[in-house]
């Protein structure tokens, strides 16, 4: 089962785990990305493309399913305005074998950062608003999977 979603509503991590685990898989790996409150950040806004963002997540999920033996994959990304502590992204990967679940989970979060149409804008308590710059380190991590 592959589940991919782009949503403005808060990600219900517990409900996503329940849905994902319905098959009773041997090994499940998870990654949860949350909004950091560093430097007085008060809002993180995620801009997305109405079609290509979800399509990009779907492409990554299918690439992972082609590469590893997976029983279930969940890839949910939140968009719009978020506050520190909110969940931005949830990746769940399950397989009969832990090595495949862990590798798929890491692949998905690494490639998601460089391949999917999403842009972060930060607003700070002092009124500053800045678009987050892509980091060279993210590209290096993503390229390891080529």
């Amino acid at each position: 089962m592959i589940r991919v979603a782009v949503q403005g509503a808060a990600i219900d991590v517990g409900a996503e785990f329940d849905l994902h685990d319905a098959g009773g898989h041997g090994a499940s790996a998870s990654f949860i990305g949350r909004v950091r409150g560093d430097g007085g950040l008060v809002e993180l806004f995620l801009e997305h493309h109405p079609v290509m963002t979800e399509a990009g997540l779907g492409d990554l999920a299918h690439a992972a399913a082609d590469r590893w033996q997976l029983a279930a994959l969940t890839l949910v990304h939140r968009v719009g305005a978020m506050a520190p502590g909110d969940t931005i992204v949830l990746v769940l990967a399950s397989s009969p074998h832990r090595s495949e679940a862990l590798a798929a989970c890491e692949f998905l979060i690494d490639r998601l950062k460089t391949d999917v149409m999403l842009w972060k804008r930060e607003t700070f308590g002092d009124g500053r608003v800045t678009w987050v710059e892509a980091r060279a380190g993210d590209a290096v991590r993503a390229e390891r999977w080529e």
């Binding site: 990305g33 995620l46 997305h48 493309h49 079609v51 290509m52 963002t53 399509a55 990304h77 931005i88 992204v89 979060i109 998601l112 950062k113 460089t114 391949d115 999917v116 149409m117 999403l118 842009w119 972060k120 678009w131 987050v132 710059e133 892509a134 993210d138």
Partner: peptide
């Protein structure tokens, strides 16, 4: 038209182009 392209990609037959900064999701 929904496919990521490099800088020199031709526009022949293109209907929609999206232009954006490097992505920063995750």
């Amino acid at each position: 038209d929904g496919v990521m392209m490099g800088p020199g990609a031709p526009l022949i037959g293109a209907r929609e182009v999206a232009l954006f900064p490097p992505v920063t999701g995750g």
